[in-house]
Amino acid sequence: MTLSMMISGPRQPRNDIDVYLSPMIEDLRLLWNDCIEVFDAYEKVNFNLRALLFCTINNFPAYGNLSGYSVKGYHVCPICEENTSYHQLKYGKKTRYIGHRKFLKCHHPYQRLKKAFNSCQEDRTAPPPLTGDKVYNRVSHVEVTYGKIV
């Protein structure tokens, strides 16, 4: 099932996105708690249909909206998190994310080069990505008030 929706307006909805998502939540609740009876045309029998939200596909800014994760600033990468290596450019006045050498395998020749990269050797290792349990522990204490901000 694909749900297509258009959120209008010159500004982002922020927390008010709950208002737009509430019809979908209602449907999902209905489809999960008390399932509905649907006719299967191939086997010619009725069956109980249940549905759940499996995954969402969105672009990077909308990712911040939906998951509540930061998509700007220093710790911007949703997978590296606090270990995102950033560099603030003094003249360009931008934050840039260089330092991909830490993802290389150990003792790769690139890690010893200085002048070619950022004038120092690389001794960091790639951060381990989050697992499902870790994410659950982190978000289980989060308290959210749903609905429109008045």
């Binding site: 990468c77 360009g92 931008k94 840039r96 994310y97």
Partner: peptide, 9 residues
């Protein structure tokens, strides 16, 4: 270095 925005990462 200014080439490396978050999308490149």
């Amino acid at each position: 270095p200014s080439f490396f925005d978050i999308m490149v990462h």
